[in-house]
Amino acid sequence: MSPTLLFLLVGVAVPFLALLLISFWTRDGFGFDTTLTFANYERIWTEPIFGALLSRSLWISGVVTVATVLLCYPMAYYVAFHVHRHKMLWIILMTLPFWTSYLLRIFAWKVILGYEGVINASLLSLGWIAAPLEFLLYSPTAVIITLAHAWAAFAILPLYVSLEKIDRSLLEAAADLGDGPARRFFRITLPLSMPGVLSAFFLIFIPTTGDYITPALLGGPDGAMIGNLIQLQFGAVNNWPMGAALSIVLTLWIAAIGLVFLALSRILAQRAA
């Protein structure tokens, strides 16, 4: 058996199958009733709280993913096409914030977004607002901003690699065949950087959907995500089977959205040609 297969089996397949098995159990006092049943899945389907949190999670991380890729693409593009010396240094400097702890960055955003934080204080002293903006902290906005910043490195690197790889003579050929800068970008650069865009999409969308630390610390009551609920099931509520079922449902949703996105990008790439 190859090491890869062994690792996948022990690290991925076995835990996943265990999770799948547990999701068909139910809670029984402090233990489990191991009779196999769809009860947990029925609850998820019928009780609105689960659907609401799930769709909010997918929405928030969807916005985070799109925002991060859109913000990072120009940065990666600039380094790949317009920086000619010390490219690696630029990339390292861009990812520098990610060398600090995730928690530290969350608290930094608290200082920036807070009721008396940097943004509100500046806007107040400039006289642009009369009262502090309350939607900044303890809201989905705060979660989106923090997550988009936290995961930027995971977008910049794959985007940069895919842009850097593009043969410059292809762009010259496109110019030679009559395309101005905008057409060149949409017909050559963008389609050829799609692998980077897709990696960035998956690298950000998958982990942020299940994130629970940022929503717990910055989300407030309206910013809670499905990850918080799953954490509760495995923690305070002590309903592991329910937590497992929620995890399985989340995994299926992410897989489905991922596949749709993949198919969509294929179609768009075909159109551009």
């Binding site: 003579s169 010259e172 110019a175 065949l177 017909r187 389609p191 790439a269 040609a273």
Partner: peptide, 27 residues
């Protein structure tokens, strides 16, 4: 370059890798 009445055959041919032959020729 994109307005000049000239076209070029590049040393490495610069064939667009994400397009088929007809799409390349009709670019």
């Amino acid at each position: 370059p994109f307005r000049r009445p000239v076209n070029m055959v590049f040393q490495n041919y610069a064939i667009f890798p994400h397009m088929n032959v007809a799409e390349n020729v009709g670019y």
